[in-house]
Write a protein that binds this DNA or RNA. Structure first.
Lengths: 341, 341
DNA sequence: GGGCTTTCTGAAAGCGCTTTCAGTATAGCA
DNA sequence: TGCTATACTGAAAGCGCTTTCAGAAAGCCC
């Protein structure tokens, strides 16, 4: 059994005492905020070394009113989507010398008695928000306080001028669906929506409708279901279509996870992909090209979105100005799941 | 363009003033640490409301010397492994009313000039360490200070009594390899190791060797390569084997990602899995059962490991005792990639 | 040599909170 | 009635740091 034996940490005054200087001087050599005589620097460094001193972050924050850290709020880490996003965000943060703190939690956000967000406005200088969980009112509360905020893949509540970074969902989906229609003659294309209220999904659906409309294909409501950007739910949704005998010549999975689920359901029901039913996704996660068949999808610059969001946030924190909205282009990636050779 | 207009936040004294009480009283109603008259509570609550007051975390930490938060240090979030792990950790933390802060970064850890870890010992009460990046010396520094620490999937540096949570890697791998040998008659089984220095991989390799030895199969060094628990690297490693004309009747991928890469390489080279070459992984990530062919693997209780680690850490933080080492059982999961129908 | 920067240093005032400590007022009890 | 618990409240002392502010020492100019 292991127990914890608390152990006093050295403070700045311990260091000052040992080095025979004042705490101001120690602070100066630690932060390099003012010239200090070489000899003094040596002494202080030595004292720091021997005491194994590290500044206490909370004290620093309190006195200096900044943390050097940005926070990321996200629903739940899973799925291939997050790796590139985090890479991008981290790159953006690092570039400016900021740390990244992630708060991944679905449940927590609401149920805190005191109603305060975990890392919001506390341990971080600014917040990257990528979750539908944070309500509009929470967001506007933070906004009204002047807390630096950047939204990832969602637009701000009406009237609030909060920067946001999103993909060109509509046009990307439209191009994809049109490919299905034109190149493969699909007419009955199933649409799997994302989670309720998801904005990306909203725009993708608009793109889907536009594509149909542009080619004179009537919208069939029975061809819409919810896949929730989740493999299992998507699989279930497609299985339900199949059970109901709904005819399909293609399925748009909503995203790549949804497409994966769709393929599972189709194959399980004995339909061949793409010979019997074409399938396409959105995002182009790393796995997409490795699937059997390789997935036709829309490439979204996930990593770049993260990067941009982070650097916009940091600009904001540092008192600069930021574009109110960034729309990143997407690109059609044709592989085999749509029927192309 | 959006600029940030900083905005004074209300402090505890603002609230006290508005409510006509002292700050001690405000603190008491916020924290419920002592009885306060009903009427006073009302006034304070009202003042908090109108001022939209939230306590300043850093100040709180500084004064109260605890953060109510545990930190998780990990190399880079990607791969299917993390979702269940994080779910588990979060569950463990939530249960005890702690927040979870994640610091995901490969690069950062070393290169910080001041040598201090980001969230270590600062914004958190304790640390869950899941990365090979944190050197032994860093770990023992933290340990010597009495900073609560729990290691995930790695054992502590020699002599340090730090709790750790690991899987039963050796026995699990041995069972898996023996299945390949006994049920499928495999004799030439490729072994893809994890990243350099990875402990899980070390034990798995021992299990692999034991299995071979137990069945009188000589160890062939050319059958060992590094897949680094990474799909691409594993694919490259297997491709190299194939190019060199090395004979194989099975490949153990090191983990499920490695197995995925192995399958890619094999299929790309025209070998059928499992007819020509059997493939197996380790972890049983969600995706494993959905692959073609479904992956034979060893199920590791990833989520439970996270849970346990978190609650052990919290026990430690709260001054309790903790087991020094937890070894979680693994289970063989037979699907089709090994050749079983 | 006097006045002027320039370089370096320490004292001290907070940052916003928690937590004794020392009450005052009221209730309970003999 | 007097004495002691009990409920409630405020003053004040930090927590460990950053940051003026002011001063001492040293170098520069005329």
């Amino acid at each position: 059994m292991i127990a914890q034996r608390p152990n006093k940490r050295a403070t700045i005054s311990d260091v000052a005492k040992l080095a025979g200087v004042s705490i101001s001087t120690v602070s100066r050599v630690v932060n390099e905020t003012a010239p200090v005589a070489d000899e003094t620097v040596q002494q202080v460094r030595h004292a720091i070394e021997t005491l194994d001193y590290t500044p206490h972050a909370a004290a620093r924050t309190l006195a200096g009113r900044r943390t050097g850290t940005i926070g990321l709020l996200l629903p739940e880490i899973s799925g291939a989507f997050y790796a590139p996003m985090l890479r991008g965000i981290e790159a953006g943060a690092l570039e400016a010398g900021f740390d990244l703190l992630i708060h991944a939690s679905s449940a927590v956000l609401q149920e805190r008695g005191n109603g305060s967000l975990p890392l919001a406005e506390h341990n971080v200088d600014g917040l990257l928000v990528f979750t539908d969980r944070l309500t509009d009112s929470e967001i506007s509360r933070l906004y009204r306080r002047g807390f630096p905020l950047v939204l990832l893949h969602r637009t701000p509540p009406a009237g609030l001028d909060i920067p946001c970074v999103t993909f060109e969902n509509k046009a990307g989906t439209r191009r994809l669906i049109e490919h299905l229609i034109i190149a493969h003659g699909c007419r009955r294309i199933g649409f799997l929506a994302g989670p309720d209220g998801n904005e990306d999904s909203y725009w993708r659906e608009l793109g889907y409708r536009e594509a149909l409309a542009a080619h004179g294909i009537p919208l069939d409501p029975s061809l819409r279901s919810v896949g929730a950007f989740d493999e299992e739910q998507a699989e279930a949704a497609v299985a339900a279509w199949l059970r109901q005998g709904i005819e399909l010549d293609a399925v748009f999975g909503g995203d790549d996870e949804g497409a994966t689920g769709a393929i599972q359901a189709l194959q399980r029901a004995g339909r061949r992909v793409p010979q019997d039913v074409a399938v396409a996704g959105f995002d182009d996660v790393p796995f997409a090209r490795l699937m059997t068949p390789p997935l036709t999808t829309v490439r979204a610059p996930i990593e770049m979105a993260g990067q941009q969001a982070a650097s916009q946030l940091i600009t904001l924190i540092q008192g600069g100005e930021s574009d109110s909205s960034t729309l990143l282009p997407t690109e059609l990636v044709i592989r085999r799941s749509c029927g192309c050779a």
